[in-house]
Design a binder for these strands. Structure first.
Lengths: 344, 344
DNA sequence: GCTGTTTACGAAAACGGTTTCGTGTTAATA
DNA sequence: TATTAACACGAAACCGTTTTCGTAAACAGC
């Protein structure tokens, strides 16, 4: 077992001082060429690599960023994460992930663990419980310590920091407008039970589009399902009883499920009934027919979040002048597929 | 902005030495009760937390583990990751993730970055390119440095280390046997083009089950698709021309796609044709009919991998006696759903 | 009053680097 | 020849902890 070699080893072996070795490996002008050659050759031979931890301690920079998300087995979050990871890696950063499991306590504990020197900044989406409790002291503490923070998707106005979100309301509005334009009249909305921030926004867009088209909003056309629904009777009743020719769902699981139910009742998609879902994931692409859905550009979102964070980290050398925070809005786009297109 | 407070600050403020502060906060017997009280009160007041980096440097233990996987937007890998993260957190470890994107070079670079002190051990699944090149020097280097390594799912015999895999061959064998038992005779196999390790194992199980039942293996019933296939003509031709009453697919995407195609040709699932997929993910649960599939127990796999790794890390204090490595095999189980059950 | 023990704390080394400053040697200049 | 600048390197501080060891002061025992 070859143990890692350190500056001290090299110095002792070559009978020079540690500082000389350090400088030689940085090709400093201070050191004579022969000495540099000798040291560099030796270092290469023994595959010397500086110890990251020691450097972190010295520089007070870890080159790590902390990502805290509610769930990892979740298409949208992993997509964002991929964007973060790619961008961060490009700039020489590693990513430490913690999963809050939608729990406030876990979110707090994870952040505290990481905030004690392990990372240079945070990127996070709030857990459901945190949004419910509306308690953001852990975020405040972190920012007060001068640790940069970027929130994405699940954000809050209570905290002053950089944010990246999508235009949920508008995306929803546009989707419904498109349905109306293609002649649909009885448009249903399938949303979550406990109005999450994003679901609420999407409902607003739905309402606005209908109103603008002069279609009265019919509450009986709005179905609220539990987040993790097992039982399909609610949805079945909903679709059995009602005359519906289009459906907007706030996520793709609901959309695919509802589409299946409608088909079971003999409706043809998209001829009799059209479907649009949010979150363009694997389900949308592989359902029959493929689902028209709102692409939230998760990867781009992750890249932007990472960029904002790292820029802030690296500009942070002086006391930050006047604090200046941005909220970037990403335009979601509708990807049209078989569940709305009637042409082949 | 309240900066982080250190032992030195406390010491200066209370006019004692740094060592006294350190000991007092650990409630050492060496320190007088009044001094301890004073110091602890002060520390609590200013919310003192020891700096992780300094501790890491001192202990040569980071309490971080590195996870390197080929892809993160991938149901199976995220499931495993969740298992790793949960277990690691329970034992006080954080997780640094790097994504190799199926690229050999990225895998190497990522591991080198992390191996220089950032982590105490690795958990990884090999990238496709690495398996193709059959070059494992980066893994060898890491293990030779005494860094514990656990491979999961995509493993290799070339490296001596702990491993966690599922019984692919047997799972496949059992699945096909079940199809045969339910009266299916013309059983197709849909697999990947460039035989990955796991695909090969699954094909073996398929062959064995057929042979054992006295059914000759018909090469024309085996379809090899590119990993990321766009074009469906290959699959369409396959299903159009052949008399097939059951299909085993090496992943759920293939299964759902093929099921859709068969349905398009007027076949009823499962009456006319049954489907079984590997990887029990979101697609299986939400397809119509829901797909019978092989659950690889990713979360359990992650937990076991993390446990093996951390146990090794924490037993590693002395020079490890004689090296002893294990390969744990997890039994995949078949989850039966509508794509094979003919009963309601 | 002298020795021997506690008690309660501080000095210093160590982890592995970076960096500032000082200094001995040589070469250039007056 | 004396002065000085350039060169090449080492000593030491520092980042924030932990931990070993040394030692003053107080106290006990004789």
């Amino acid at each position: 077992m070859k143990r890692k070699i350190t500056l001290k080893h090299i110095a002792r072996e070559l009978d020079v001082s540690i500082s000389t070795v350090s400088k030689a490996l940085k090709n400093s002008e201070e050191i004579g060429q022969d000495t540099k050659d000798k040291i560099q050759a030796f270092a290469k031979l023994y595959n010397y690599r500086p110890n990251n931890i020691a450097i972190s301690l010295k520089n007070k920079r870890t080159k790590n960023i902390g990502v805290v998300i509610p769930d990892i087995v979740h298409h949208f979050f992993t997509t964002v994460f991929r964007g973060i990871e790619h961008y961060a890696n490009k700039r020489g950063y590693n990513v430490i992930v913690c999963v809050s499991d939608e729990s406030f306590d876990k979110e707090v504990i994870n952040m505290e663990m990481l905030a004690n020197g392990s990372i240079d900044g945070f990127i996070m989406a709030l857990s459901g419980e945190t949004q419910l409790k509306n308690d953001y002291n852990h975020l405040k503490e972190v920012t007060e310590q001068g640790i940069p923070l970027v929130l994405f998707d699940r954000v809050t106005d209570e905290i002053q920091c950089d944010k990246v979100i999508i235009n949920d309301e508008e995306a929803s509005y546009n989707a419904v407008k498109k349905l109306i334009a293609s002649g649909r009249k009885k448009i249903a909305l399938v949303t979550t039970e406990n109005y999450l921030n994003v679901s609420a926004k999407r409902a607003e867009g739905y309402n606005r589009a209908l109103k603008e088209a002069g279609i009265p909003v019919d509450k009986s056309l709005i179905l609220q399902l539990p987040y993790q629904q097992q039982d399909e009777s609610m949805s079945e009743n909903f679709f059995r009883k009602r005359e519906i020719d289009a459906v907007l769902c706030v996520n793709e699981i609901f959309a695919v499920k509802c589409m299946g139910i409608a088909q079971k009742f003999g409706k043809r998609v998209p001829e009799d009934i059209a479907f649009i879902g949010f979150t363009d994931g694997i389900l949308s692409r592989h359902s029959t027919p493929p689902l028209t859905s709102v692409d939230q550009h998760g990867e781009r979102m992750g890249e932007i979040a990472a960029q904002m964070l790292i820029d802030k980290i690296e500009s942070d050398h002086g006391e930050q002048d006047e604090e200046h925070y941005e909220t970037k809005v990403i335009n979601a786009t509708l990807i049209e597929r078989g569940s709305t297109l009637s042409g082949s």
